[in-house]
Design a protein around this nucleic acid. Structure first.
Lengths: 123, 123
DNA sequence: CTGAATCCTACCGGATACTG
DNA sequence: CAGTATCCGGTAGGATTCAG
């Protein structure tokens, strides 16, 4: 399925994969694909995501041109993050993963139980 | 795009995301979607993947029911990994990511250069 | 509110050696 | 060949504090 070159360390495809393989980035992209949001709102919405990692992830997404960062000079300052057209194309692609997850999660969970049961019995 | 529940820690969707967000798992799934392979062949093919992590990842994939592990009692022993029908559906979904990467990688790279240039100039 | 800076720890993962 | 076990260093990331 994947082209052979993707398995050498310097393949561009693998560089992209490094970014997409970031759980938080995927989650944030999904959120922002629905509506722009502010920093603390994102922080409160995504459970288990620290403010440090949130800031890092948002910076990466901005650097990749997937989201924009807009500062409004209110008091106190307001910062809004929004998805870009480019980011939207990725969000749509990644959304297929969510659909797969919803469809096949029960089967995966069943496989895990079977695997664990077999190992417990062997021991 | 993503459903609200996906942002709580105990959502099934997020559990699946944890697995998909594994670069090596994605790479291995892509390889095995083409043909069954043996341990050392996978090891040699995927550059930068240590044998320890390879073993771990293959065990996870097997536990999730995405690949099968077949032992042939030859001397020395032969172990072959093959993708399952379930794994194949995920591989096809994930392959969309590769297509996105190939299509948009140049644009992402351009955005990165612009971002880095802007920051360098500011400093 | 939106971060950046510091400190500190847990865990990931590499290297190596050993086994069936 | 196909792993497991052990050791060990680097680093991601949590907690906390401070700033604009």
């Amino acid at each position: 399925m994947l082209i052979p070159d993707a398995y050498s360390a310097d393949c561009p495809t693998r560089q992209v994969l490094d970014r997409v393989a970031d759980k938080w980035a995927v989650l944030l992209l999904g959120l922002l694909s629905r509506e722009p949001m502010r920093f603390n709102r994102l922080r409160r919405t995504v459970e288990g995501l620290s403010q440090k990692v949130l800031a890092q992830t948002l910076r990466s997404l901005e650097r990749d041109g997937l989201v924009t960062r807009s500062v409004f000079p209110t008091v106190p300052v307001t910062v809004e993050y929004a998805i870009t057209p480019l980011g939207m194309t990725l969000a749509q692609t990644v959304d297929q993963l969510r659909i797969w997850a919803e469809t096949h999660m029960p089967e995966v969970a069943a496989c895990q139980r079977r695997y664990d049961a077999a190992r417990a019995e062997a021991a």
